[in-house]
Amino acid sequence: MKHIRSISEIGKAGVLAIVERAKQMSEINSRPVPKVPALRGKTVVSLFLEDSTRTRLSFETAAKRLSAETMNFSVSTSSVNKGESLRDTIETISDMGVDAFVVRHKSSGIPWQIEQWTDASIINAGDGAHQHPTQALVDCFTVSEAFGVDSFEGLTISIVGDIRHSRVARSNVEAFAMLGAKVIIVAPSTLLPPDVGHWPVTISNDIDDVIGTTDILYMLRLQSERMDQGLIPNLSEYGNRFGLTEKRVSQLPLNARIMHPGPMNRGVEMQVDPSHLSQSLIHRQVANGVSVRMAVLFTALTLNDDRDHAIQGLSKEAAQ
């Protein structure tokens, strides 16, 4: 798989394979020296044209643990802001000889647009409100780990919040449904995307209707600008209707779990301190980020290589 751009492109077999590979990576990460030579000689460029220190660090750590060279173009250092076009930037960096771009951009579709300007692999680290496939892969891995299952058949996952503007929601709806979960999206109508009858979800406007039957409550961040855009009256009304409160936590089924892709908006969608919640998988999501991104980079960058040789690289104790 050359590019990792959307869950639908990756497909069910691809999602399962990456989750499986991530288990191997997590074993490597538990070693005293968590580094293998699997991607030695490969160069990974992170091109983050929208700030996200967390995701960028997660990718760069993953690349380093696989012994890839890393280059970093961020908003501040990039010439994209100095009138150079994205095409110029991509072509210039490609000329330096790179194997993969890890791209984050505030506009939907960038990973598809830049494909025509480079031969390198493209890893989507979030494009507009479109897709964030590595977050969805992290979440699938985390659910799989927490529930000890590969298939999500029989699990009900409720994704609560600003679905309309969320790339995480779009990727996760597809990935969770692909693995067999029943997915419910929960939001006021103003924060739901229009005409999504074809999505594999049930739609609800009331968190209290679904909380008692939810196995995984997936909370999304609510940005305060949604109030300025007139999509919600104010943050406290939103928090009261859709936030995670002590009362709602108590209504969750016994073995239910709580997830959040971060960063959290305390006092809005999270009215409880998640560190006090035994049900929280939020730390596991962060911890699994590096393993899954190692699996993603490995999958994308060993496409044309001798697979067996590459997989041997994973088993070496450490990079020389």
Binding site: S108, H198, W199
Partner: peptide, 18 residues
């Protein structure tokens, strides 16, 4: 708005032109 408001604009995560 980037395109017609429809299931496709929702899939792509872009504001629609209803």
């Amino acid at each position: 708005a980037v395109m017609h408001e429809c299931g496709c604009s929702s899939d792509l995560g872009v504001p629609g032109w209803p």
